[in-house]
Design a protein around this nucleic acid. Sequence first.
DNA 1: CGTACCTTTGACGGCTGTCAAAGGAAGTGG
DNA 2: CCACTTCCTTTGACAGCCGTCAAAGGTACG
Lengths: 249, 249
Amino acid sequence: MAEHFESCVTQNLSHHMAIGEQEARILSELEQAPSKVKKGHELWKAGTRPDQLYTLRSGWAYSYHSLGEDSIRVLDIFMPGDLMGIRDATLPHHYTTAAMLTDGVICPFPTSRLKGIFENHPNLAMGIHASAARQQAVITDRLINVLSNDARCRIAHFILEIYYRIKRVHGDLGSGFTLPLLQKHISLALGLTHVHVSRILKALHADHVIKKTRSEIEILDLTCLHQISNFDAEKFGDKMNPLLVDERG
Amino acid sequence: MAEHFESCVTQNLSHHMAIGEQEARILSELEQAPSKVKKGHELWKAGTRPDQLYTLRSGWAYSYHSLGEDSIRVLDIFMPGDLMGIRDATLPHHYTTAAMLTDGVICPFPTSRLKGIFENHPNLAMGIHASAARQQAVITDRLINVLSNDARCRIAHFILEIYYRIKRVHGDLGSGFTLPLLQKHISLALGLTHVHVSRILKALHADHVIKKTRSEIEILDLTCLHQISNFDAEKFGDKMNPLLVDERG
DNA sequence: CGTACCTTTGACGGCTGTCAAAGGAAGTGG
DNA sequence: CCACTTCCTTTGACAGCCGTCAAAGGTACG
């Protein structure tokens, strides 16, 4: 809480591995230019060349893929500490569009500097690769969720995914916390209609499992939520494959 | 066809970027021990530590996630040239189990050597990262597919995904080709029942779009297949973000 | 204070899952 | 080469989850 010498990304990457002092300095350089952005601010557009990555220092953001004019699907939910844009960094064009869900602070840095990091800081390169792999794991997990579960289970699973991701960064939080996702966003992330999401949330409230309001959520019965979602919290561990970590740290 | 001096992975990675001679030598070392494996052979098990990566030299393989005893979901379909196991390489435990769909030849190499590659061959490290990102793109695309489309469209989309992946490696193939995926596998990859997959395949045949037999498939009307799936073939380009490629090559 | 957006509710229909059973195709052992 | 088993594919009847459409009530925001 007290120290802010650590950059946001350092905090993120150090979940996975030991970060040396020099490496921490490199990383903090990446966050030189924090800028305040407002809700709705667009970070990048689908089809453009990925020339900036961003770290999210405060606020929430999301990315989506558009099909046709009015039809989109939500892919990523970003929260403070997340590295935004690595998914597409190596591709010639962005697959998604990304925008802020709330007001917040972001720190951009040029994609081209990834090259230098890979050349001079293999340990960081591995960390970035690992962080990307972890973001992929979230998407993969959602694919499994959507492939396997009905609406009630999908929603329970999705909420727990977010709950544990917040918990990892914020430490233990109470049963209630901020969740600036509207029913619309949940439906677009899970392949449901907002009408049906409304029905399920209502039912989950009636069953004393969760209580979701416009911008917050309260988990009334965590155990029950687990039962409904058969969610495996262990997947979200931060540990790396020991075969790949540097022992000299 | 004629030259086999190039290793399988070299061929794969060189789709994305220029590979130097020395780097090619490093890569070919990775394929020192090709081994014949039979259909059904298990490459790795969920929950174990990822200590081997594999390149697939011939044959087909797949990975799946199991839920409960008899219930699984198919995640990856691997075909010759693919690097198998990078998804989980940085994680402490395999998320999936992987097995051969057909007889084939694989080349294992220890995960721990990734560390050396990241330390001494940044260009290769970037290539491996890019290759992983490309595999992620396939999964992400399937998530969008499953979130957005009905059964007929999902199946059309899935078939085109595989069609273009084969085409990229094998060059132009006729309208018919080997596809050792049973209706079971298709259903497990798309969140449908094998009964319903059977119904849709029958209908697509009746409409003269495709003709799928047990181990092969023939595309009767590619244009129509595209219309049904609204599949965007450009996503499967091999190019990298120009900001990250080494100009000295 | 008015407008736009979000949430809730109800009726209705369709896509797809479930169950069950029969017909083929592949693999195995004699 | 045949018999037998196992697994894959096909078909039909039926049910249910969830999408669609429509409208009203809430909540934020200018």
